[in-house]
Design a protein around this nucleic acid. Structure first.
Length: 635
DNA sequence: GGTATAATGAGTGTTCGC
DNA sequence: GCGAACACTCATTATACC
């Protein structure tokens, strides 16, 4: 395969996107006794001859070009000698980290100003959150930034932006924005020059692939030394080399036309991967990024604009997989190893709406030129639920809701809270405050009267998750099931941000295979992006959810075809071939497999990826692999 | 029998103090 | 560096009620 293909309309799709290719040919600029990822000795002739003329000056120049002050480089060379570049680099990075604060005399302020926020904005955020709370400061800055950039939101939040108004305008007027050249310029300006990126740049300049460097930093931790990072990358390279000696997985993976991928092969592959994982325990845990903003969020720090996908991961088709971020150990490593070693993108939806939703996404979509849905939803509880503001006590400092789950707090609980509060006039004692706040956080309770808290209504959850008002209402669904279906769904704005890159690629429409589609979060996201849905094959076990999606499909007067399938396990190669020959190849396969056995809330059967429901992930992989094979065979 | 309600911790990661 | 305390989590099961 040459990596490029055409869609049915003849539009050429560039699967080898720029961000996948642009880091391939980075010149080597460092020399030491260590071995480069490609197996060559580090350093080149040109540099060697140049170094021979004036080794120390060239060495100083080399590090100065990396951005270190000459005095600092000189000191590092004096302390560590000229021979060991790793030690010099480590020393430089150490000096940078412990360097005194800049003119502001505040390292915290300098840090965020360095990320591209204005000094005034940062000072205000520090004043509000305290200098020690960097996470809250960042959140505040992101909110300021979003408000500053979105007059629409500013207007709403500043005025009576009540939920009913929000819901009306919000979903009747779905619209999107494209990033203007001015916005792009702003993004370039917001260029984080932090310690971690410095390491990434240095590793890339040293000749390592950016992807490898990024994974190394991710897995070793941002506080790891350069030696640890380069060792990690070398070890990973050796492991890959060993893999290369084994029979090609691709040749096993590609069944002949009409041939179903054998479960024994799948198990064998799984076993090999698990054994490999067992041998490399350090590699088992994927560290969650903090802040959890994935490759970038709207109005956030400069987004990551490049990544190199493993060859096997490159489409067609595109794929987009989702599940809870906080899983038992090793789950995301396993998921990633099946999904072609693509690095998960962990994102907390609290950067897209007023509720947290920590999720991991593995996909092969480009990550450049993403754009958010408009209107941007309110990012705070009071913005989303303004009527609660009147009753919100000053000692409840929450500005975001926790994860919207499938169950809600009981009436008895809210009664206990009311009684506990009514025993005291004015501000309750700290012990009562703690009890109430613990329960409010646990059950996502909001203030609806004096001493009165309540769980969220289903339509409020719909709004927070980015669905149209009444999306899950009526048609035979009860209140409990509404909460259950919503709790299991995507956060539409978050997913739409990731999928937005498809808009320019598929102006004539898109063929979607939606696995575990639930109440249609992916479809709603694509629709709100104004990407025409040509064919959607929706696989969903719950009849209630299928009805919800069918109803939405009809209400939104979709021009395409919606095909319902109930059981993902029954979807086989023959059926896929038939669907694809009738409606054309799937452009994207989207799915979030069941999290029941992964989620922290499950206290009975948190059995991991091998659990009864969560093991359906392997069907996602099976089907994705089959579609890839069918597409390949037809080329 | 279907629905709504209430009760049920543990695993994981982070923070904090020593 | 280490351990304790803390915070958070797309849930499941038993029971009451209609």
């Amino acid at each position: 395969m040459d990596g490029n293909t055409s869609d049915p309309e003849g539009n050429t799709l560039d699967w080898d996107t720029e961000d996948e290719l642009e880091i391939d040919d980075i010149p080597l600029s460092s020399s030491s006794g260590r071995t480069l990822p490609n197996g060559e000795a580090r350093g080149n002739n040109r540099e060697a001859s140049s170094n021979a003329a004036s080794p120390r000056l060239n060495l100083i120049d080399h590090f100065v070009q990396m951005g270190f002050p000459a005095e600092m480089v000189d000191r590092a060379i004096q302390e560590n000698g000229e021979e060991n570049l790793d030690l010099i680099l480590e020393a430089l990075l150490r000096y940078s980290e412990t360097a005194p604060a800049g003119p502001s005399n505040s390292r915290c302020l300098d840090h965020f100003v360095g990320m591209g926020f204005t000094e005034k904005m940062v000072a205000k955020a520090i004043e509000e959150n305290g200098e020690g709370n960097t996470d809250s400061i960042l959140e505040t800055l992101l909110t300021y930034s979003a408000l500053e950039k979105s007059p629409e939101v500013q207007k709403h939040v500043g005025s009576a932006y009540c939920s009913s108004e929000h819901e009306q305008g919000f979903l009747d007027d779905f619209s999107v924005i494209d990033i203007s050249s001015e916005d792009e310029e702003n993004i370039k300006i917001i260029n984080p020059v932090n310690f971690e990126e410095n390491k990434l740049l240095l590793l890339v300049k040293m000749g390592y692939k950016a992807e490898d460097a990024s994974i190394a930093i991710e897995r070793c931790g941002s506080d790891s030394t350069m030696v640890e990072l380069t060792d990690f990358i070398s070890a990973a390279q050796m492991a890959r080399d060993e893999d290369a000696l084994l029979p090609s997985e691709d040749t096993q993976r590609i069944p002949k036309r009409g041939q179903i991928l054998d479960h024994d092969i799948l198990r064998k592959k799984k076993k090999v991967r698990l054994e490999k994982k067992f041998l490399d325990e350090d590699d088992e845990t994927l560290h969650l990024p903090k802040p959890m903003i994935g490759f970038g969020i709207p109005n956030g720090p400069a987004p990551l604009t490049y990544r190199k996908l493993p060859k096997a991961a490159i489409g067609p088709p595109y794929f987009y997989y989702e599940n809870v971020a906080l899983t038992p150990k090793g789950v995301w490593s396993t998921i990633s190893s099946f999904l072609y070693e693509v690095e998960p993108e962990f994102v907390d939806s609290k950067y897209f709406c007023a509720a947290a939703r920590k999720r991991g996404y593995i996909h092969n979509l480009p990550i450049q030129n993403r754009f958010p849905l408009l209107p941007v939803p309110p990012l705070t509880i009071h913005g989303a639920l303004p009527l609660t503001k009147k009753w919100w006590p000053s000692w409840d400092k929450r500005t975001k809701l926790n994860c919207l789950q499938t169950c809600i707090g009981s009436a008895k609980l809210t009664e206990r809270i009311r009684k506990a509060l009514e025993e005291h006039d004015g501000v309750p004692p700290l012990s009562v405050q703690k009890y109430v706040l613990d329960e409010c956080r646990k059950w996502n309770l909001v203030w609806v009267g004096r001493n009165k808290v309540a769980p969220l209504e289903a339509d409020e959850v719909e709004m927070l998750l980015g669905f149209p008002k009444n999306h899950t209402r009526g048609g035979g669904i009860n209140r409990t099931d509404r909460h259950k279906s919503l709790g299991n769904s995507f956060q539409v704005d978050t997913v739409a941000f990731h999928l937005s890159v498809l808009k320019n690629m598929f102006p004539e429409g898109i063929n979607v295979l939606s696995l575990f589609s639930g109440i249609g979060g992916a479809e709603v996201a694509l629709h709100r992006l104004r990407i025409p849905l040509k064919t959607v094959v929706s696989v969903e076990i719950s009849e209630v959810n299928r009805n919800i999606q069918r109803s939405w499909w009809e209400q939104t007067e979709q021009k395409g075809r919606l095909i319902d399938i109930a059981d993902v396990q029954q979807l086989d190669a023959d059926q896929l071939e038939e669907l694809m020959s009738t409606f054309g190849a799937f452009d994207i396969i989207i799915g979030g497999s069941p999290c029941n056995n992964l989620a922290g809330s499950n206290r009975y059967s948190r059995d991991g990826l091998e659990g009864k429901e969560s093991s359906l992930f392997y069907d996602y992989f099976r089907i994705l692999d089959l579609v890839k094979c069918i597409i390949k065979n037809k080329q």
